[in-house]
Design a protein around this nucleic acid. Structure first.
Lengths: 200, 200
DNA sequence: CAACATAAAACTGTTAACAATATTTATTTA
DNA sequence: TAAATAAATATTGTTAACAGTTTTATGTTG
């Protein structure tokens, strides 16, 4: 397993994404470039890059000459639409990989689920959310590479703002086991059903 | 009609988007920050911002410490998936606005179609593409504001790389008339059918 | 000549100072 | 006092210099 080297900017982006998803940075909170620069021990340049990125992901809202603030969660209607879009993308991905995915790769996914399980037990919901995203990202990347990730990621990350299900669903981990098991059996129908059940 | 003030960065982004969509900047073309800065008469800072944005939109691919280059068009499979996603979003938008859209707004859309018609006659296909996007963006914005635009835009803009239909379809302008007419009659079914016909 | 090591050039990443804009505070005026 | 105006402050936008990395060119050695 490769240890993934992340640039300074990507690491900062990850932290801020976590802060927003966890609610630590509440909607409408205004971000100050200088404060963030001091917090992360860098200059304003990289901070501005991160703000641009998160704005494009929909987590922040930016106004010219005024700055960026944390966006509000999606309206119920848009949340519902996002679920439909995610299903379409992930069903596509399942179909694309189910014949070719190797047992090593399936084991890798098992490992991610184990991590999810641990975080769930410890009630570390932000980390659980990130592991959840990592799980789905894994086979979506397999299916369509960076291009498919680009279509998928902004939808998922946006859905995760104020995502309460992660804290209440006891079946969440099992749902992911079902997905992997269906893939292991090369059973498209079951796999797609498992995906559909999980995405809501 | 408001004359929309665009920041320097947004204007540069628009130009580069056009260059990529038109094919003037071919896939795999490497972008040089210094050259672009000189071309637009700014420093590297704003150029880097634009590159980040277009990378997030999927038009460019960036590698750490190496730079950005023009992405390749979507594979046929991903293009097909994108069409499905776009349909889902735009059908949602049509349903959301069809009862409340005003005649002024419908006339506005007629105006955009007129622009499309002109560009089509003059075979200005890049401008035609931009007007096409403007048309759809108009009612999607009405339906779901900036949040929905954020979900929709990266999909559409990515689809437009090497989009040949724009040059060959003589029915393209009429398809848009059909959409507006169905909306004017508050006929959801016809409107959705018109949208479905147009998105391909 | 080919493979490898080394030096130079080109390019991206980062920083800090400066400019322009927006916001807040203080002052004036009716 | 309240509204309008002006000064001060804070914040974002831009620039140019510097640092670090990658790529290219050059040279060395087997």
């Amino acid at each position: 397993m490769k240890p993934k080297i992340l640039s300074v900017r990507d690491q900062i982006a990850d932290v801020l994404r976590s802060d927003i998803i966890s609610g630590e940075l509440a909607p409408n909170t205004k971000l100050n470039e200088i404060q963030l620069a001091e917090r992360f021990g860098v200059s304003r340049g990289p901070i501005r890059d991160v703000i641009l990125k998160l704005t494009k992901e929909g987590l922040l809202v930016s106004k010219n000459n005024v700055g960026a603030s944390v966006n509000s969660p999606l309206s119920p209607e848009l949340q519902k639409l996002s679920i439909d879009l995610r299903k379409k993308i992930e069903e596509f991905a399942v179909k694309a990989v189910i014949e070719s995915i190797s047992s090593d790769q399936l084991n890798e996914m098992d490992g991610i689920i184990d991590v999810m399980h641990e975080h769930f037990e410890k009630q570390e919901y932000t980390e659980l959310t990130k592991a959840d995203i990592t799980f789905h990202q894994y086979f979506i990347e397999l299916a369509g590479g960076e291009n498919l990730i680009n279509l998928w990621y902004p939808i998922v990350i946006r859905m995760r703002m104020n995502y309460q299900r992660i804290k209440t669903s006891s079946t969440l981990v099992d749902e992911h086991r079902d997905i992997v098991n269906a893939m292991r059996e090369r059973n498209v129908k079951d796999a797609i059903n498992a995906i559909r059940k999980n995405i809501k």
